[in-house]
Design a protein around this nucleic acid. Structure first.
Lengths: 224, 224
DNA sequence: GGACTTGTGTGACCTGGGTCACCGACCGGG
DNA sequence: CCCGGTCGGTGACCCAGGTCACACAAGTCC
């Protein structure tokens, strides 16, 4: 695929880019790059430096925090059309990444170099609002995350994760292990809870996937 | 105290305000207000709307999240010279408060009306950096909060809270109950842990206060 | 100096969920 | 068809921390 095509696709995914003033659009088009991550590649590490504002074209990355003990909490996942708001945090604060990220599958990105980013943030109200929009969204996501982690019992978080992971037909292609990682627990415990739910007819278990039979009961399963 | 005095004091607390362009400074001085909260007053509630950018001149407010079960997690406390970064979140996102806040003592604020805030954010790079600075700080605070809540055992969080609350002489004027609230636990448990530490000579217990005897051991007490 | 209100100490008990140690089932490749 | 890796299931056990139910000590207000 030629670079021109890539640029078009990028703009297709992020239509707001269009609304930049001509000079700004020019700058963006001129400096954008298109890195690709293979499945399993780390996009960035904890405390790494950050040189680009990243936007996701294709694929999916998982952003999470890890404890010394090796357990994890999922912060969020970015799919096509999403930006990695942590790069924003990084670029705005001048600091390093507060979390780590790995690609779950082959992932194509659009990357604006820091200089372009800073320039546009200073000059372009449109660009600012584009960036800040995602950034404030991240912030509110963190708040809900906080009280889930602080207050919600494991079952509840697990139920939500499962629902979030399910495709339209209700199939979530995940292993117990990855679920456990996402909710910050361990496989055995997750398996047990899933077994209960399967018992109750809320879900059906396959190898490498969970099929949700009764979405609404599952959603209710966590609470109380 | 006259308004002119108040304005001077405000600028004294937030020297960066000085660096605004004359026209912007003019606008800020012309529209700033100085509300006062009595001890125990709620500064804002969960999901409340937000009409002002708030900066703290004197006093202290506690910002926290509450679960249905009535337990709390402390997000942060704002003292003199601090801004309430949640108002930023609110004003930038156009949404409502993601948490609640109450004044711990009589608190004097400086408040910029939303229109002024938006105007300055749009026009003044200096103001933007002033605001974004605190905002990104909040964000990174949330990250550390997340993995404390997710991974750190209660003891560790308690130890930190105690150290954070202590005055230079090592005296923290808090009740077991307020400590428990801050770390999202209950009184009995906190009392027990404190009793252990007192036993070990790390702290000394008084009514309504805890005196830290051995700061460094206390800091280490949480880990492992 | 009662009588109430706040802060604290303590024991008995319960439970969510993490740990350990397996085993068995499925799956893909030589 | 066998063999090693990835998934999933299960039981025994343990422990931090929350719940309940008090008892008591310090201030405080009349």
């Amino acid at each position: 695929m030629t670079d021109a095509h890539k640029v078009e696709r990028w703009i297709g995914r992020f239509p707001l880019i269009q609304s930049l003033a001509p000079a700004h659009l020019q700058l963006a088009r001129g400096t954008v790059q298109f890195p690709v991550l293979e499945a399993g590649a780390v996009a960035y590490e904890l405390d790494g430096a950050c040189a680009h504002y990243l936007m996701c074209l294709e694929g999916r990355t998982r952003i999470f925090r890890m404890s010394e003990g090796g357990r994890e909490v999922l912060i969020y996942k970015v799919g096509p059309g999403g930006t990695c708001a942590l790069t924003t945090q990084c670029l705005l604060s001048g600091g390093t990444f507060p979390a780590q990220s790995v690609a779950e599958e082959r992932t194509e990105l659009a990357a604006l170099p820091e200089s372009t980013f800073q320039h546009l943030m200073g000059d372009s109200a449109a660009f600012r609002s584009l960036v800040m929009d995602d950034y404030t969204r991240l912030m509110s996501g963190l708040f809900t995350l906080i009280d889930e982690v602080a207050f919600a019992p494991l079952k509840q978080r697990l139920a939500q994760r499962l629902l979030a992971e399910a495709d339209p037909r209700g199939v979530a292609a995940v292993t117990h292990q990855t679920l456990a990682d996402d909710v910050g627990s361990v496989r055995e415990v997750v398996s047990r809870i899933l077994a209960q739910w399967a018992e109750a007819g809320l879900i059906e278990l396959r190898r490498g996937a969970v099929e949700i039979v009764d979405r609404s009961s599952l959603a209710a399963a966590g609470r109380r």
